[in-house]
Structure formats: C-alpha cells, structure tokens
C-alpha cells in the first residue's frame, strides 16, 4: 500500500472496522512490525527519521496517559524526551484549550479533554504531518466542530493531516481527499472535488468498494 498526502491538505483514511486503518498507522509509526516488507514515512522508517516527533505527530488512542499525572506534567515528560522546552507545553495547552485544566490529574478529565490532551502531545514537536486515529470518538458535536477548525488551521499552514475514521459523515465535511481501504488493501484514492454531489457520492463509492468484496 502506497499513498501520497498533499501538503496543506486533510486526507480521510476510511474503511470498515477491521479494515486495517489502525494497523497501517501503527506500522507507519514503527509500533507494529510488518511480517514482510517495510513501512516508510517521508521515505524512511519512522525510527530512522531524525527527531521523528518534530516531523510526525500522532494520536492513536483516546487515553494514552498515566491517569495519576497532571495534563501539564504528561506533556512535560514528552517534551523532555523530544528535547523541547516547557514553553512549548504551554503553547500546545493553549492550542487545545486545556490551560485551565492542565494542573489537574488526567483521571479527572472527560473523554473530550483526553482527546485534546492527546492532540496536544502530537502537536508538541510542531510536526509537518499529523496522523490521527479516530480522533472524533467521544467528542460531542461542539468538540467535533472545534477539532475540524483546528485541523483546517493546521492544514492552512501548509501541513498535512491524515485522519482515520469509520464514520463517513464525521470526515466528509473536513477532508480534501479520501483514501479508502478494505481488508488491508487500498481500494480508492480520490480528491473530494472528483466526488461531485458531496457526501452522497462519497458514501456510494465507499459502500460500493467495501461491500463488494465482503459478500
């Protein structure tokens, strides 16, 4: 599977549950080892990138924290590991609007706040590429709206976003392009402009490609 992501765009990574979206992201990030072949991002293995956290930011699960640590200290622990000063921690806390809750233990956070803290961690290294696995899970409509705005702004700065989801409607409004995978294979890659008629035809395409093979 090979795909290109255009800088300055948001790409949806779509597919049914179990299609391999999460596994693909974990392969790219070197968390999971391929049984054969290699997973490359920016032409190299993630671990082979120079200061990878400054090039790729990722959120894989909604709550990858020590619940007993405060939001601020969680980010500070990561900042120390990627050699970034604590000033940047305050910046990303502002970006995700968690400044007021940063001193509280993560245990007390709502799911939406945890999602935002995860996002703050991904933004810490000021990366060019953001990989988000189902980032809207657990967000209320207001949270989804907020996330959309944040991602648009991020893309507007010439950076790239890949956002996986199995909920088409969640993604259709924000993405510039879509990749559709099914059973571990890339089955379609389209610009949203190619899909005239908006959501409707994305849904048609998705259903056609993912349903056909499953019967």
């Amino acid at each position: 599977m090979t795909f290109d992501l255009e800088p300055g765009t948001i790409t949806g990574f779509l597919g049914p549950n179990g299609a391999g979206k999460s596994t693909t992201l974990r392969l790219l990030l070197g968390l999971v080892r391929p049984t054969s072949g290699d997973a490359l991002v920016f032409g190299r293995r993630y671990a082979g990138l120079d200061q990878p956290a400054r090039r790729v930011g990722a959120v894989l699960e909604a709550s990858d924290f020590d619940p007993g640590r405060s939001g601020r200290n969680h980010l500070r622990a990561l900042a120390l590991a990627i050699d970034i000063d604590f000033g940047r921690v305050e910046e990303v806390l502002d970006i995700v609007d968690l400044g007021d809750a940063a001193h509280r233990r993560v245990k007390t956070y709502s799911l939406g706040m945890r999602q935002r803290l995860g996002l703050a961690g991904a933004l810490l290294g000021d990366p060019e590429l953001l990989l988000l696995d189902e980032p809207a899970n657990g967000l209320d409509p207001e949270g989804v709206h907020w996330l959309r705005g944040l991602l648009r702004q991020f893309a507007k700065q010439g950076r790239t976003v890949l956002i996986s989801s199995h909920v088409l409607a969640e993604v259709a409004q924000v993405v510039d392009a879509v990749l559709i995978i099914d059973r571990g294979r890339l089955v379609a890659s389209r610009e949203m402009t190619e899909l005239t008629g908006g959501d409707r035809s994305l849904e048609d395409l998705y259903l056609e490609l993912t349903a056909k093979e499953r019967v």
């Binding site: 968390l31 956290a53 990858d64 924290f65 020590d66 990561l78 590991a81 990627i82």
Partner: peptide, 16 residues
C-alpha cells in the same frame, strides 16, 4: 504501568 495505561505509545513515538 506504561504498557497497561497506554503511555508506552507516546513514549515510543517520542523515542522510537
């Protein structure tokens, strides 16, 4: 503890 609560993922993304 990191493996249990998931912190291992951000840890390994920061230092692969």
């Amino acid at each position: 503890t990191e493996i249990r609560n998931g912190m291992i993922r951000p840890t390994l993304l920061a230092m692969p």
